Deep mutational scan, measured.
Amino acid sequence: MQFKLIINGKTLKGEITLEAVDAAEAEKKFKQYANDNGIDGEWTYDDATKTFTVTE
């Protein structure tokens, strides 16, 4: 399945997509990506659109 991450950071904004088996795997990958890029914020997930959002 394809999942999307919307980044609303203080210095980094944008979207990325990835393939994952389920939402838990996608969340783990997205949070690792955010951590690697210094993004720390409030996370939400919309199951209907398979979209994660992180807002700093």
Rank of each mutant, 00 (worst) to 15 (best):
T17R: 07
T53G: 12
T53R: 05
V21G: 06
Q32T: 13
N37E: 09
I39G: 02
A34R: 01
V54Q: 01
L18P: 01
I7Q: 02
I6M: 08
A26T: 01
A26F: 00
V54Y: 01
G38L: 07
G14V: 13
L18A: 13
K13A: 14
D36Y: 11
D36C: 05
V54H: 02
T53N: 05
I6K: 09
N37A: 14
K50Q: 11
F3W: 15
I16Q: 07
Y33P: 00
G14R: 14
D40S: 14
D36S: 08
E56D: 04
E27G: 07
F30E: 00
Y33Q: 06
F52R: 00
K31H: 08
D47Q: 11
F3C: 01
K29C: 04
K28S: 12
E56Y: 04
T51S: 14
F3E: 00
T17I: 09
G38C: 05
L12S: 05
E19L: 09
T53Q: 07
Q2R: 15
A23I: 13
T49D: 03
A24Q: 12
K4L: 15
Y33S: 05
T17N: 12
A20F: 09
T53K: 11
N8M: 09
T55S: 08
A48T: 15
G9D: 07
W43T: 01
I6S: 03
K10D: 12
Q2K: 11
T55C: 02
W43I: 02
W43G: 00
K28N: 11
T44G: 04
F30T: 08
V21F: 12
E25D: 13
N8T: 11
A26C: 02
K29G: 06
W43N: 00
I16V: 09
D36W: 09
D22W: 08
L18Y: 08
E15M: 04
A24C: 03
E25A: 11
A26P: 01
D22K: 07
T55D: 15
T55A: 04
D40F: 12
E42I: 05
L5D: 00
F52Y: 14
I39Y: 05
T11N: 15
K28M: 14
A26V: 03
T53L: 12
T53Y: 06
E15A: 04
E19W: 09
G41I: 01
F52N: 00
I6Y: 08
E19I: 06
F3R: 00
L12Q: 12
D22Q: 06
D40I: 12
T11I: 14
A48N: 15
K4P: 00
Q32P: 02
D47K: 10
A48D: 11
I6G: 07
F52V: 01
F3Y: 11
N8H: 09
A23S: 13
T53A: 10
T44K: 13
N8F: 15
D47E: 15
D36M: 08
A48I: 12
K31M: 10
N8P: 04
F52Q: 00
T17A: 06
A48W: 12
K29R: 06
N37W: 06
D46Q: 11
L18H: 14
N35Y: 15
K10V: 15
M1W: 05
I16G: 04
T51N: 06
T55H: 05
G14A: 07
M1L: 11
Q2M: 09
Y45D: 01
T11A: 12
I16N: 12
T11S: 09
A26S: 03
T49P: 09
E42M: 14
M1F: 07
E27F: 04
F52E: 00
E15W: 03
T11Q: 08
E19S: 15
G9A: 13
A24W: 04
L18C: 04
T44I: 05
D47V: 09
T17F: 06
Y45V: 04
V54D: 01
Q32A: 08
V54W: 02
Q32D: 14
D46P: 00
A20V: 04
D46W: 11
A23R: 12
I7P: 01
I39A: 03
T49S: 10
M1E: 13
T51F: 14
E27I: 06
N35M: 05
Q2W: 06
Y45W: 07
F3P: 00
Q32R: 05
I39R: 01
V54E: 00
Y45Q: 03
K13D: 10
T17G: 07
V21M: 10
T53D: 02
K10W: 04
K31W: 09
K13H: 14
E56N: 02
E25G: 10
T49R: 13
N37T: 15
K50A: 08
W43F: 03
W43Y: 02
D40Q: 12
D22C: 04
A48M: 05
D40N: 09
A48V: 08
L18T: 10
A20L: 05
K31V: 10
D22V: 07
E56H: 05
V21E: 13
T17C: 04
N35R: 08
N37S: 06
D46S: 06
Q2L: 15
W43P: 01
T11K: 09
G14Q: 06
M1A: 13
T49N: 12
N35T: 05
Y45R: 05
T17K: 09
K13G: 14
F3Q: 00
F30C: 03
K13E: 09
I7L: 05
L18S: 08
A24H: 07
N37G: 10
Q32Y: 07
V54K: 00
D46H: 06
E56Q: 06
K28V: 11
I39D: 01
E42H: 12
I16F: 11
D47A: 10
Y33E: 10
N8R: 15
D22M: 06
K10T: 11
E27T: 03
W43D: 00
I39M: 08
F3A: 00
E42W: 08
N35D: 10
E25C: 04
K4F: 08
E27L: 14
T51K: 04
V54F: 06
A48S: 10
A34P: 01
N35L: 13
G41C: 01
T53C: 04
L5H: 00
K13C: 03
G9K: 07
